[in-house]
Design a protein around this nucleic acid. Structure first.
Lengths: 178, 178, 178, 178
DNA sequence: AATGAATGAGACTTCATTCAT
DNA sequence: TATGAATGAAGTCTCATTCAT
């Protein structure tokens, strides 16, 4: 891919990530294009329809989440500390998982996009591992799992970040403690 | 207001509540009218624009929430038990507070609609009272307040109800415990 | 249907018939709406998409063709005379059969629209009957049938009418003579 | 012109001829470029706009038609036999004369393109000559001329070739007989 | 007062054409 | 020179809102 095309692609995904998180996946394509500094046509050349763009943003997000866990694994000792740090990173990133692609079954969109599927799976594996270890250590309550935590984060992330939401995350972490 | 007009109004609000909660506040007006068994014209006669309808649904919801607290107050002994029951009722009602009308400041829409303002205030007073009492009893942690709890419920309510979401509410309640 | 709605519907179909015949079935919907003196929205309320409009125009055309045969049957003695008169009427009406709906198999669109299907069948029956009789009388050559004649008329009709096209029809009629 | 440039040009015209005949002159330029194995840029370097490409394809077609007459002249004895053979060749070539460039007056496009004009004129002369001779021989009816025959072929050619269309051509030839 | 028809602005998408690489 | 990326105008369709019946 040509250098300028790649740069445009990146700008489009970045703009879409911000706008999708802020205003929902229904944000007008024209607005996304404008925010990315390109014409609509360019956007559509790269992403044939809205779903393709949503998938690209999701892929990007899963990648960032996987990186966040990896980073936390490297710097924290206990699994519980990793989990805490990861969830706080997640909160800071405002990485809303569009259309709940991981919580409520596996939609066709994910099946159809191998790259999305793979990066999502990599993140799930890392996440599952942390949860398992934290439960084995007796730090994380045993009646919750990836599904509960991810679902919570997903609803949580949709609100603007504020002191209030930070406190909610604290409460949730206390509740999760075994 | 004539009896049939009142019946129409009620049906419209009921239909809107269901559809707003299920499909978001962007649900086409025509669809709401159809679900209510009336023509669009009738809907617009009653509610000059979408905001007016949203306000009416919000008013209805605040009323139900106030009733839920009142009922819990009547049947539970401790404030903490009232709070628990109330939050579970809220979860059962799926009463999403559209457009966060109560959590993030006081939007102009609420100011402009005296009835909405009043019923919202009545509910806030009841809620604040329960929280205060639960904290006085030493049952509810002191670093959270109405804002945190309502914000959480509001994000929480947007997801379909399921075993997973029920468990999330449990975790949150444990986290809230002093 | 309300009187004004019916009038609009008729105007839309009439405008579409003219424009489809002149400029093809790709004529912009907006242009059709303008020619009919209505807004695009009205057009789309009546006909959910282009195909629906094409079907309506086709239905209208088949109806007119059936009437033309019926009229010719009433005023002419021999089947051959009926055929001649019918083909000349067809030429005068400029009733292009959009998308060849009757010549090349039976497209799904026709199957899916009972009214279109029925009116088309009625016309086919009348037409087949004339052809059969003309052949029995020894006036029409036996190596052609409805398919050939309709296919010819269909390609023929797409051109503007002129002295040249009139002469072409004469030649074809001579060629059809047994 | 460099050899590879010439090869590109030829491939583009060939691809356009096929696609124009199959899908109409509205075929997307990108599709034509792809079929020709070049980029759109190359296509536009050779042909500044769609009209230029249409003209080039038309030129190519007139050339082929002229060759077809010349070949028929060489192998058939009577002018009528030449005419028959030529019309059947035309039918086999599927050489639709795009945009009726020769039948309905002389559009500006032809005037503006000397090469197109010349090759078209050469073909017209050959064609006119055959017609004249066939009429002189008493084989071709005298109330038709080049205009009628070309117009017919032009409408005829737009349909897919099939047994049905072959039969239509037979009928027309019989009709043309004096 | 109720209905549903009409309007037109705006969102989505395609593609002819231009232009940077 | 060849490529294919970018642009934006134009067409399709939807829906909030108004208004005739």
């Amino acid at each position: 891919m040509r250098a300028d095309a790649q740069r445009n692609r990146d700008q489009i995904v970045a703009a879409a990530r911000v706008l999708f998180t802020a205003n929902g996946v229904d944000t007008p394509m024209e607005e996304i294009a404008r925010a990315a500094g390109v014409g609509v046509g360019t956007l559509y050349r790269r992403f044939p329809d809205r779903d393709a763009l949503v998938n690209a943003v999701s892929t990007d997000m899963f990648q960032r989440l996987a990186e966040a866990i990896t980073a936390a694994n490297a710097s924290e000792k206990s699994a519980w500390a990793v989990l805490q740090r990861f969830l706080r990173s997640w909160s800071e990133f405002r990485l809303g998982l569009l259309q709940d692609p991981m919580c409520h079954g596996i939609p066709a969109a994910i099946e159809a996009d191998p790259e999305l599927r793979e990066v999502r799976q990599r993140w799930l594996d890392l996440f599952e591992d942390v949860i398992q270890r934290a439960q084995d250590d007796g730090d994380l309550r045993k009646d919750v799992g990836l599904l509960e935590i991810a679902t919570f984060m997903n609803m949580f992330i949709r609100d603007e970040r504020s002191e209030v939401t930070d406190r909610i995350l604290d409460v949730m972490l206390d509740g999760l403690r075994a």
